[in-house]
Design a binder for these strands. Sequence first.
DNA 1: CCGTATCCCAGCAGATACTG
DNA 2: CAGTATCTGCTGGGATACGG
Lengths: 129, 129
Amino acid sequence: MKEPRFDCAVDAAMSVIEGRWKTVIMCQLAHRREPMRYNQLMSGIPGISPRIFTLQLKEMEKDGLIIRDVRSESPKHVEYSLSPRGLSLLPILVSLAEWGLKNMFPNRVRFEANATMPERSDLERAGLC
Amino acid sequence: MKEPRFDCAVDAAMSVIEGRWKTVIMCQLAHRREPMRYNQLMSGIPGISPRIFTLQLKEMEKDGLIIRDVRSESPKHVEYSLSPRGLSLLPILVSLAEWGLKNMFPNRVRFEANATMPERSDLERAGLC
DNA sequence: CCGTATCCCAGCAGATACTG
DNA sequence: CAGTATCTGCTGGGATACGG
């Protein structure tokens, strides 16, 4: 993602949370509930390489989802934490996780097929395109 | 995306809604509130090319978000609609859109900075990693 | 009308080694 | 400790033309 997309509100939000590891990083920070250091955070995410990890962090910082706090140089000590904006995204990630549990792991939770179409007024108030 | 990711529930959900145009397509279908035909749907999405459009539709169908219904051959008539599963995702897209409005268009709505950390029990019940 | 076929490319992502 | 540097590959996305 170079620049966030602004065509519609959902798309704008998606452009900020898309990225192979961003939601995972947010989950880690949410789970630990306190600022985390670079290696501490990375070691909780198996399979990520330092380059990609740094890139994702940089984008998330630029988009205001996380805060990077340099506590000391040599020995360098940096702490990452969720910003208020990132925090405000957590309830949505929780909803997504619940949806994922129901729909992607059908063996664990039975799929609820009784969803109904939301009112159009709700859609429009939310700027859903 | 080749195969959905299953490491954690959020990631699993994200792997299904990621894709340059998927949320936009869902928005269109949600807004119109009735089955839409290929060209009708595509013409509501400026900038998309037929190849990509078809690819996104195929993936969404495979992931059970939409239903593809062939009503007749020659003249070919196909209708796309949201499945129950796709429908069940709409409330989350609405939340995302609201978040996007607040955070990506700060001129239109003032940013609310009073979010608080959800309880860890909520996170874990949702399978948030 | 509803797509494929073909070609192309930028950018994301990964592995590994290295440094202030 | 917290990152860069470098190289490399893949694949998602795009333009355009054509086909059943």
